[in-house]
Design a protein around this nucleic acid. Structure first.
Lengths: 248, 248
DNA sequence: GATCATAGTCGTCTCCCTGACGATAAACAG
DNA sequence: CTGTTTATCGTCAGGGAGACGACTATGATC
């Protein structure tokens, strides 16, 4: 119930991005190396300030385009999926001033070029396991120092959101190119959940759910073995009944 | 990736509360009447500014206590449940200045006193159906003018979150007093979902899910009919498999 | 007190989905 | 040609949910 807004101290509002993709059978997140204090030289999630006349979702989409060149295309499109994740506003999460960060979650297909960022910042895909590994874990290539700020928590929340959301929605297709096989989709589930799924039961489930997959008529052998049918994501967004994640 | 925070224009950060309860077989939300412009005289969600050294969740809990006297008690406690809902930051959602609002969702048992607010603001429970009814719907007691700001959208999102979350979690018990019967819990589901459930199948489901309900040994006849066993919420927070919401 | 209405509780039956797993098909590598 | 890999179809048993019958234990009403 706002009284007089100007009577209250200002907050900085930013967006942070948890950009996930599946590369080489592993769930990976986009990380950028910080060029300035605090946390200089450490890895962090991409993000930036919300502009004065910009909606939160628009700010996230703009940052995403700046960092990766990816375009968001919400309804049925076959580019990245973007949704709001959560907001983090602990006093002291940024030592410089009070910053409230609205985190967004992006699910993207594996990009041909690793990352073609707009500016010169170092950006790379890193397996989430390594980014979330406790301090002291092996880091042979120096890429797994702990994330800056509270970004480990944000990334963890994003990963958990993605893991649970592919259970009951068709969002896993956002990790796939516009045409994909059942096996490729299965490998997405396996990478995100970190488990092995039975190919036969998976095939029965996804092809038996109306509106989930639409055959394009083509086939491919890019995975080796017998040619597989190519599919496109169907109109269904909700999976009912859901895809069950195996027990731990 | 913050540069110089002071170089960016300030935002006001507030928390808004979607406080839900079940009263007389209807899902109700807490609404307060605005005493000042803009939207003077209209109903709105309770909320207020986040203080300089206050975490977002703490601000929401403080506002909740100020408006209702409810205390939040996260782990297993039998008072209100509070969680972050989403953040709304459209430019222009508040005509006075740029306000980013972090909405929170509260699930509370039916309160004995309707609302015992701290300050003198008029607060009341209103059925969400009426609060969300399109403008022009009947409002015999004048209580259903459209909500101020974008609060109808926020309330809608909160209701949808509650509806889906009681499917796969034990959160429905947050609407019940500390001891309750299976029938009372069923009426919570029926009110939140707006459907009728089979009492026998519901009884089998909730009593057969380990850790969901713990019998206290007592019985009650406060609902009339045969005495019913009293239960307390068990430790389980996730329902697996979930409670299925009947088709539309 | 008998009857009725109201809730609660236990069972049964069928259908559908899932997990486990056998079998076949169609490509490629040697 | 043979082995390897991946895709795809089929079968079978078990669990859970929807539909619904039956019985129980209260208070209200006649």
């Amino acid at each position: 119930m706002p009284y007089d807004p100007s009577a209250y101290p200002p907050f900085a509002v930013t967006v942070d991005l948890v950009v996930l993709t599946v590369r080489r059978h592993a769930l990976c997140a986009l990380a950028v190396r910080r060029g300035e204090a605090p946390f200089q030289g450490q890895w962090a999630l991409p993000g930036g300030f919300v502009r004065p006349e910009e909606d939160l979702g628009a700010a996230a989409a703009r940052e995403l385009a700046e960092e990766t060149g990816l375009r968001v295309q919400e309804p049925g499109g076959h580019r990245a999926h973007l949704e709001q994740l959560a907001t983090y506003g602990d006093p002291g999460r940024d030592p410089r001033m009070r910053v409230v960060s609205v985190a967004h979650l992006v699910l993207a297909p594996d990009l041909p070029a690793p990352v073609s960022g707009g500016d010169a910042k170092t950006a790379r895909w890193a397996p989430v396991d390594r980014l979330l590994a406790p301090a002291g874990a092996d880091r042979e290539d120096g890429s797994s120092s702990p994330l800056a700020f509270d970004h480990a928590r944000i990334l963890g929340d994003g990963v958990e959101r993605a893991r649970s959301k592919i259970e009951y929605s068709s969002l896993a297709t956002a990790f796939c190119p516009s045409e994909f096989t059942v096996g490729e989709l299965r490998r997405v589930y396996e990478a995100v959940w970190g488990v092995a799924l039975d190919p036969r039961n998976f095939h029965r489930k996804v092809t038996g759910t109306p509106g989930f997959l639409v055959p394009t008529g083509g086939t491919t052998t890019r995975q080796g073995g017998r040619p597989a049918q190519l599919f496109r994501a169907g109109g269904a967004t909700l999976l009912n009944p859901p895809m069950l994640r195996p027990e731990v």
